[in-house]
Design a protein around this nucleic acid. Structure first.
Length: 424
RNA sequence: GUGAGCGUAGCCCAGCGGUCAAGGCGCCAGGCUGUGGCCCUGGAGAUCGAGGGUUCGAAUCCCUCCGCUCACCCCA
């Protein structure tokens, strides 16, 4: 038997309510903030991600789904959302639009990782990008939208972590500082951290090992080693966040894994202290567009994991609107009534009513059971007696009451009770 | 890539060396032949993840592989 590939999953009908809820909530926020939708291809030139995300990142080193197509091109299934949007910004001349350009997207993301709770090889992200504005006010706007997403969904206990990691003019100095601090302590670090020291010193700061925690507490902080420009940006951003009443916490240990981040980084973390503790993650990427061959252009954005949002909605039992309507079921009996049932269904559907025709060649009893299990509010019964008299029996399943009506009468009754306007 | 746990019908699961692998949910049918939700009865559905081994005999013990889950790395 075939199975879904490791790390992929089917989103079944009974789970769609959550997904729909998250998407609608996110779309509505984007509408209010003026972030327009963009869709980019699921695959792109592999080089876009190598250059954009950084050839030293885990994503590029070991997580990309890259393949050669029949024309010999190296293509990669999108492992993150920002680089493709920036590519589109450059390719489609969005630099000549009024700046900043505000965009949002929903898309599948592919990374070759070992799956675990809240982590998949194919997952889905909602994300936004604000490209072409270097000021801290837009940082605050993006962070606010990320926070409002989680808050509006109704998730409790989430926290907003913000940090700055400097820019190319001050980060090298800071990294040197960090390295020399850790150099003396190398021997007492966990094996992972010893590797990080060489490979990616910033990562030393968010090690989860108990033994490394004391070192982290006293480590030099990037926020204390900013150049004047970064310092101004950082101070100003915090003022904006306060004025927007965002409950943010400065988290000196917060770093992000993609090379393109500069200055502002932030995350929204869920109440559950699990390992997958990022619901929303993002930051500023002022060097990215230039790295992709464009004029120097600032940008900031975030990605939100839809699976993780849904997971948390479920575990917190947040009520979400049901999208499956209560249908009308057409029950029918007899050779002549069978085809007539489909005609009645067609007529009702033309009036926007959700209609299921009961499986034929079942007893009326079985068809009524079927209607019950489909959660039908009304059943239209069409048998020989109805056919002979040119009427329909319409049964209200909740009231356990039925009446004979003409097709016209039934249509108007059911339109009122089960039509698209009521939704239920 | 590393470590741990687990694999019995669509789902939840009992059985833990010995007759045709039990139960619940769900599904289908019937309960006087035109009427649901409860209840009752019946039915379909499992090569007990796969392969090999031990044994007179294995779902039950051993080995290998595969898969799933969780954690690390890292990330949404």
């Amino acid at each position: 038997m075939y199975r879904a590939s490791r790390g992929t999953q089917d989103i079944l009908p009974q789970e769609q309510d959550y997904w729909r809820y998250v998407q609608r909530t996110a779309e509505e926020l984007c509408r209010r903030f003026g972030y327009q939708r963009i869709d980019t291809p699921v695959f792109e030139s592999a080089d876009l991600f190598v250059r954009g995300v950084g050839d030293a990142t885990d994503i590029v080193i070991k997580e990309m789904y890259t393949f050669e197509d029949r024309g010999g091109e190296q293509l990669t299934l999108r492992p993150e959302g920002t680089a493709p949007v920036c590519r589109a910004y450059l390719e489609r001349g969005m630099a000549s639009l009024p700046q900043p350009v505000r965009l949002h997207y929903f898309c599948p993301i592919f990374r070759y990782e070992r799956p675990q709770a809240g982590r998949y090889r194919q997952h889905h992200q909602f994300g936004i990008e604000a490209i072409g504005d270097a000021g801290p006010a837009i940082d605050a706007e993006v962070i606010q939208l990320g926070w409002l997403l989680v808050a509006t969904l109704g998730l409790k206990g989430a926290s907003l972590k913000v940090n700055t990691i400097g820019d190319p003019s001050c980060r090298p100095t800071y990294l040197q500082e960090l390295r020399s601090y850790y150099q003396a302590r190398l021997a007492s670090l966990c094996p992972d951290c010893q590797a990080r020291y060489h490979r990616n010193p910033l990562r030393l700061l968010d090690c989860k090992q108990q033994t490394c925690q004391p070192h982290i507490l006293e480590a030099p902080r990037s926020a204390d080693h900013l150049c004047p420009d970064c310092q101004r940006h950082w101070t100003s951003l915090q003022q904006y966040l306060e004025e927007l009443d965002l409950p943010f916490q400065v988290e000196p240990r917060l770093v992000r894994g993609l090379d393109y981040y500069a200055r502002t980084v932030f995350e929204v973390q869920p109440q559950e202290e699990g390992s997958q503790s990022t619901l929303v993650g993002g930051g500023r990427y002022d060097g990215l567009i230039q790295a992709l061959g464009g004029r120097p252009t600032p940008g900031i954005g975030f990605g939100a994991g839809l699976e993780r949002l849904v997971l948390n909605l479920r575990s917190q039992q947040v009520p979400v609107p049901a999208v499956i309507p209560r249908p009308v079921v057409v029950a029918h009996q007899g050779k002549e009534a069978d085809p007539r049932g489909a005609q009645v269904a067609t007529q009702l559907r033309q009036h926007g009513i959700s209609v299921l025709v009961a499986p034929s060649s079942r007893s009326l009893r079985a068809q009524m059971r079927y209607a019950s299990s489909m959660n039908a509010r009304f059943v239209v019964i069409l048998g020989e007696a109805e056919l002979a008299r040119g009427v329909l029996t319409v049964r209200d399943m909740d009231q356990a009451h039925q009446q004979e009506l003409t097709l016209e009468q039934a249509t108007s009754l059911l339109s009122l009770a089960a039509g698209p306007a009521t939704g239920q």
